[in-house]
Design a protein around this nucleic acid. Structure first.
Lengths: 241, 241
DNA sequence: ACCGATTTGTTCGTATGTATA
DNA sequence: ATATACATACGAACAAATCGG
């Protein structure tokens, strides 16, 4: 069991024990650990000591602690590689995940400054905004807004509503290939609505990528803002240059 | 002033007014806006209406709202490009910022699983851990831990303490050039200690990059875990392949 | 270590106008 | 015309964070 006053802090020993048990499969991905009070009884330590060990395990990505629910063994995170050509479903299928796409909305609107600049339009030009959520193994992991110039893609909204897919709708306009030009990555807390769509607590941050996709001629065809639930997704970069 | 019942919601009008005033320099980057109650009095609206306007301005990156402190005009964010060869000070100097480096710690320790795997060592091998904080224009923006195999860089800790620079210490061992192999990006909430070092509230998320640097021969020389204050830093990716 | 003042964050309730079915 | 849903706006109260003394 634990050795007290032996140079190694109790919480470190507890962290090791719990991590080993997770490694041996005593607790499997997605499982809930015993409550902090139960663990405190098991190791005959104060609940604070357990919390210190769990905090470390959460920080290093082994656990996911949710207020009011418990501590859970993290499922392997989903890798979201940023490359010139990234396709959501191909990417997930490569990781043996079942991808899902939930179309949420397709509307026309006036472009604000950010969108207009990204697509090379004048502010106020009409754009199509497509909203969709992404899933992996049935879990909500992303929430994406895509903007397209209406001049070039006049019927986009209807096509998206019918096909439920951005790629298919684009293919209709003859854009069969497009690639990512630049990507901006930030982290922030979600709004209430974003947390709801991502099915996550408002206390967990989201990763946000903003990227411009261009056609083979280099003309911007899409401006995308994609939110990822940071508890489930990590971004991988294989840098260039 | 504001026109009520005129098709445009009050909070939208307020957002426009505040944004214009920021644009005209009435409030400059870093300035604190009047409190929500003061703004509510000024525009003769309820505090909720002000909050709706501020929420939008924060979401679009114009403001930064801190509980208990106030709302602040955001300084232009710092771009942290992920490329094969990224040097902190060169990068910032290119953005007309004054870079700072604050060496915090240099210790030897046993490699845990993550570090050992990244550096191609056996778990338990001794590594050097260097800790430093990065600043731009005097503001704390990053908190980095770097790990090096002691076998190859035996005197690293002392050199770092004397020079205060990772690059200089590495150059001492003949490693004058190294490049980034892969980068993992996640977002999470900071621990109390991390928030303290980054001089930020615990309620703001951090961006974490984990990367392996290799020498020209492709041998791993450094494993780095770098935390960025997400309020000040955004990551830019120019993707490859 | 604590207290009080200030400021933002959250959650109730209430009311009204607008768009939609 | 009616009913319903939704966005907007106001009011009150309390929670949580910050900062000074």
């Amino acid at each position: 069991m634990l050795t007290r006053g032996k140079g190694v802090a109790l919480w470190r020993q507890i962290r090791e024990v719990v991590q080993e048990e997770i490694g041996k499969g005593v607790y499997r991905p997605g499982d809930r650990l015993p409550s902090e009070n139960e663990l405190a009884r098991r190791f005959s330590v104060n609940r604070h000591t357990i919390r210190r060990a769990l905090e470390e395990l959460e920080r290093t990505g082994v656990l996911r602690v949710e207020q009011g629910r418990g501590s859970f063994v993290r499922e392997p995170v989903i890798n979201y590689p940023v490359k010139r050509r990234t396709r959501f479903s191909e990417n997930l299928a490569g990781q043996r995940r079942v991808p899902g796409n939930v179309p949420l909305q397709a509307v026309e609107a006036a472009a604000d400054d950010v969108v207009a600049e990204a697509l090379g339009l004048a502010p106020g030009d009409t754009v199509i905004r497509l909203t969709a959520a992404g899933e992996a193994d049935g879990r909500r992991i992303s929430y994406a807004n895509s903007f397209f110039p209406r001049r070039r893609f006049p019927d986009m909204a209807r096509l998206f509503r019918e096909t439920g897919s951005v790629s298919k709708a684009l293919a209709h306009f003859g854009v069969r290939d497009y690639s990512r030009k630049s990507t901006r990555i930030v982290a922030r807390m979600p709004t209430a609505e974003e947390a709801r769509v991502l099915d996550q607590p408002r206390t967990r941050p989201v990763l946000v990528t903003e990227s411009v996709n261009v056609d083979p001629a280099g003309v911007p065809v899409e401006f995308g803002v994609c939110l990822f639930a940071s508890d489930w997704v990590q971004i991988l970069v294989e840098p260039s240059e």
